[in-house]
Nucleic acid binder design. Structure first.
Length: 421
DNA sequence: CCTCCACAGGAAGCGCAGGAGT
DNA sequence: ACTCCTGCGCTTCCTGTGGAGG
């Protein structure tokens, strides 16, 4: 059986030509509709070729607006130039370290360790660095001050122009500290420098910084707007050309995918997911072309995947709360309600009762009502429920809750995830 | 009008795990 | 390897808000 699967994979070239092209991490040769942004960022970091310190940059935009992609794209071009001696007459030592702060670089300590352990940073630079214990490149275990001193020394003795890219910078717990630490290096060394490119999809992040870090990080600021449908269309066409077999998907179907994605905040990543899923559906039914039904099915599947992923990664008690809401929504509420109130709108009080009951059934002790309210807020932020103040209603100052997805689906996902019967 | 109900959300504090400092 | 510290999830307590009902 398994052998067949592998063999078939080779035999049937199917619909795709190159799946990697459809990955959100793929950086294409051309970036449609982001030329201006790419040029702008290039202009900001260009002084690095004259060994001058570029301004720090803060980039903000919703998911799937091409922030990381543009930055990586520009960096790739920069590295090409730096490597070419004829184009880099000043022999600038440029080191770029990219890190996604969600993936385990969530504190200043981890960021420093990652910097010192990064291969591009390590390869020959220690040779000019007179550190006693230089032979072993292990840095974890050192305390932050030592890490800082070592980083400073390596940068200074090798005249490194360092660019640190902190993607999802809002995930760093002590982001004020790390910004301060990294920029302070510049005041203490005479050769080489450090600049920061911070990327975030939450604008509130900037407001939460203290004044000093804010003005440091945001020397240059760029906002990435969501793509519209026609822009998404050209992006998808580009990927189709590279990633799909010729004539396996029609223009009108690509346009439909673009339209779907434009409705969801112009998220290019979502558009690519749809495109890939539609191709997979067609391929699994052994067709050579994507049909319009495949696209429609892909939309449902991708949304299910997203919601399912969202729910199953939720903390246990948030899942139980969600289940409680689904339970009442499917069974019907027994609370008094106004005649014109839809039946799927629930009171937070009855949900808490149901939550307590379910907890008892599965032998968990319920969280307090105060924390339960925080859970409801979290679920609302994730878009799994919607809530509104009661206004003119039966029970004074309360919140009305409505489930964002069909109750039966939610119950199924939660019971599978928590192993409920 | 006053009081009670049902709830919202801030403040303080508690226990714990894991990271930092020695 | 050790203690100390800090952040996190959570509870407890409290004040505030608006409708219901006497």
């Amino acid at each position: 059986m398994i052998e067949n699967i592998f063999e078939n994979e080779l035999k049937e070239r199917g619909i795709f030509r190159d799946l990697a092209v459809l990955s959100p991490h793929y950086i294409p040769q051309e970036l449609p509709h982001r030329e201006e942004e790419a040029n702008g960022i290039s202009r900001i970091i260009a002084p690095i070729l004259r060994n001058e310190k570029p301004n720090n940059i803060f980039i903000y935009g919703k998911t799937g607006t091409g922030k990381s992609c543009v930055v990586k794209y520009v960096i790739r071009k920069l590295e090409d130039i730096v490597k070419d001696p004829s184009k880099n007459p000043n022999k600038s030592e440029v080191v770029v370290v990219y890190m996604n702060c969600r993936m385990g670089y969530g504190s200043k300590y981890q960021v420093l360790v990652k910097l010192l352990e990064d291969p591009s940073f390590q390869k020959d630079y220690y040779k000019n660095t007179p550190l006693k214990d230089r032979h072993d490149n292990k840095v974890s275990g050192l305390n932050p001050t030592e890490l800082y001193e070592r980083l400073k020394k390596v940068i200074e003795s090798n005249s490194i122009n360092l660019i640190v890219i902190l993607d999802e910078i809002d995930m760093i717990k002590d982001n004020d500290d790390i910004i301060y630490i990294l920029t302070r290096i510049n005041d203490e060394i005479t050769s080489g420098h450090v600049s920061i490119i911070g990327i975030s999809n939450r604008y509130t992040f900037k407001e939460n910084l203290d004044q000093r870090s804010k003005s440091t990080l945001c020397e240059e600021e760029r906002v990435f707007k969501p793509y519209n449908a026609s822009q998404l269309k050209t992006i998808l066409h580009q990927r189709v050309k590279l990633g799909f077999q010729p004539r396996s998907i029609s223009d009108s179907h690509v346009a439909l995918i673009a339209a779907y994605a434009a409705q969801t905040n112009g998220d290019a990543r979502y558009a690519l997911k749809l495109l890939q899923k539609a191709g997979e559906i067609a391929q699994s039914s052994k067709r050579k072309r994507v049909k319009i039904e495949d696209v429609k099915e892909a939309k449902i599947k991708v949304e299910e995947d997203i919601v399912g992923e969202l729910i199953t990664t939720l903390p246990e008690h948030q899942q139980i709360v969600l289940y409680s809401i689904a339970e009442i929504a499917s069974k019907g509420s027994h609370y008094k309600r106004l005649s014109d109130m839809p039946t799927d709108v629930l009171f937070s009080g009855e949900i808490y009762e149901s939550y307590e009951r379910i907890c008892k059934n599965i032998n968990k002790n319920p969280r307090s009502m105060r924390w339960f309210r925080e859970y409801l807020n979290d679920l609302e932020m994730l878009g799994l429920i919607t809530h509104s103040p009661s206004g003119k209603g039966v029970r004074g100052n309360t919140t009305l809750i409505r489930l964002g997805n069909p109750p039966e689906d939610v119950k199924k996902i939660v019971s599978a995830s928590l192993g409920l019967s």
